[in-house]
């Protein structure tokens, strides 16, 4: 397991993730910070709880790093995702990608967050004023018509 891809029960340190991809060959480091939003479609979230299948989630984060390397050569990626109870504005995920030139760093960073939402076994539970629910991504954006992602999405 690479130490650049991990699940954490503690607050994430943005600089720690950035430092892992900082190198002399890079001309750009793109950082994505996913935070806990208060309102979703008018509904107020009080707090979130994230759960992960930790060993598999860390493997899948590392896989995303490998996929990025294949698509954008000479890229270095680090990803940390938090689990447990998070309050509004807390940081849930930090992605840092360093590349020689800036364009690739934006594309690769975007790719990383989209892939996290497809293949990494992490779930969030939203707590509202009048209830709570585990959120499946099919309810938000992506449907799995066959009950699961396509084979090619996963390997």
């Amino acid at each position: 397991m690479s130490n650049k891809f991990w699940i954490s029960e503690k607050a994430l340190d943005i600089q720690e993730v950035v430092d892992l991809v900082t190198r002399r060959e890079a001309g750009a480091i793109n950082t994505f910070i996913g935070t806990v939003r208060e309102f979703t479609k008018g509904k107020r979230t009080l707090l979130l709880e994230y759960q992960a299948y930790v060993p598999m989630a860390e493997k899948k984060l590392a896989q995303i790093g490998e996929e990025i390397k294949e698509k954008w050569p000479d890229t270095d990626t680090a990803i940390a995702h938090r689990i447990g109870r998070l309050d509004i504005t807390d940081i849930a995920v930090v992605i840092a990608v360093s590349t020689p030139h800036r364009a690739d760093s934006y594309d690769a960073s975007r790719y990383a967050i989209e892939r996290i939402k497809e293949i990494v076994p992490i779930w969030k539970k939203e707590y509202w004023e009048n209830g709570e629910e585990w959120i499946g991504d099919q309810k938000e954006q992506k449907a799995y018509p066959k009950g699961q992602p396509d084979e090619e999405d996963l390997t």
Partner: peptide, 29 residues
């Protein structure tokens, strides 16, 4: 489903000692 931490399809046949995880649609990020 994941068998031993890797996604597996419905036809996959389980062996002795395999760990099988059922993974609802994910919502990380």
């Amino acid at each position: 489903a994941a068998v031993n931490e890797e996604y597996a399809n419905g036809d996959f046949v389980v062996k002795e000692g395999d760990t099988i995880a059922f993974i609802p649609p994910v919502s990380g990020g």
